[in-house]
């Protein structure tokens, strides 16, 4: 059993004809990771906005924006349904653009970033999960559409 399922689980995980739930199966792992990143980005930016806003206002605001995006995707995944799927898809795309854009920006012009954001250097400080997560999310949400 384990041999066959290792490769085919991703394909069988989205059963046909079921009411679109986005937070079960592999989606459960996504919900968890998005939840963790919501908490991490939100608490980080809250602390930084309150305690040291003057140090690097722009990166801290960007962190807060990423926290909102993460929070919205988490909520959409838990809620499920077609509308939430589309909204989450758009947000995952936005997230990917954000990671790539800010990641490039931090490398090209480090002086604009006195302090790091969650998305600095493509999320290197977070084991590159910020750049892996939206790609996984987009794949999962695309797959769920056909379910």
């Amino acid at each position: 059993m384990p041999e066959t399922s290792a490769t085919s689980a991703a394909d069988t995980a989205a059963p046909a004809g079921q009411r679109r739930s986005l937070g079960t199966g592999p989606g459960r792992l996504l919900v968890t990771l998005y939840g963790v990143f919501t908490v991490a980005a939100a608490s980080r930016s809250l602390y930084q906005l309150i305690a040291q806003f003057d140090l690097a206002p722009m990166p801290y605001i960007l962190s807060a924006v990423s926290a909102v995006v993460y929070g919205f995707i988490t909520f959409s995944l838990v809620r499920g349904g077609e509308g939430a799927r589309r909204a989450a898809f758009a947000c995952c795309a936005l997230e990917l653009l954000g990671v790539l854009g800010i990641g490039t920006w931090t490398l090209v012009e480090p002086s604009a970033f006195p302090d790091a954001t969650v998305w600095s250097d493509y999320g290197m400080g977070y084991l590159f999960i910020p750049v892996i997560l939206p790609v996984t999310g987009l794949v999962w949400l695309r797959r769920s559409r056909t379910a």
Partner: peptide, 21 residues
């Protein structure tokens, strides 16, 4: 938190969730 998530996801993905946590 991840333990409770895996309680309601009785598949391999529940195990994966705890691994991630």
């Amino acid at each position: 938190a991840t333990g409770f998530m895996s309680l309601s996801e009785r598949t391999r993905w529940g195990s994966a969730t705890v691994t991630a946590g």
